[in-house]
Amino acid sequence: MADTAVAHEGHTSSTGISNVKLGMWLFLGSECLLFGGLISTYMLYRGRVSNGPTPEQVYDIPFTSVSSFVLLMSSLTMVLAVSAAAKKDDRGTNLWLVVTALLGATFVGGQVYEFTAFYNEGLGFTTSLFGSSFYTLTGFHGVHVTVGIIMLMALVAINKRSRVPGSKAETVEMIGLYWHFVDIVWIIIFTLVYLIPV
């Protein structure tokens, strides 16, 4: 990832794999326990509505299905960006990164809309255990997507200034891993939170 000749030479690694990639996978392994905790909290509390609406009353499955589909497809565009970067195709990389970021932004926009709609229907963060745990879980996920969008846009900006084609290929791959991870977390949330009724 470091873009100087100095950093590249003598890249001695006992396993032959890159430090950054190994570090990223370790981080994702760790994130499993973070989201696991949040999902478990939601699962335990989803039926506990002492006040305000129940999940069935607020969830809009068709709407969430569309935004889930958008996020799922952003994984395809992300992998196309990674693939283009590996081929040193900077134009293609940037194009797919921007598309990925736009799809991600659509998802986050959908989430903002959803939160607003739920709030108007009487489900606040402090309304019930269901409200607290729902907003915490999906909010954490939304923050992860937002961080991903910022990284994607920053990457496009850096890529445009780079003179060596494909020099950021590993960075693209790392952000790709992060992006896909955020997507698979949503795959689980979509089923456990939205599709399976209490």
Partner: peptide, 15 residues
């Protein structure tokens, strides 16, 4: 193993 193959830069390796 002493890894020398990757010494030509991460991008080429990644490709």
């Amino acid at each position: 193993t002493e890894h020398t193959a990757a010494s030509h830069g991460d991008s080429a390796h990644g490709g």
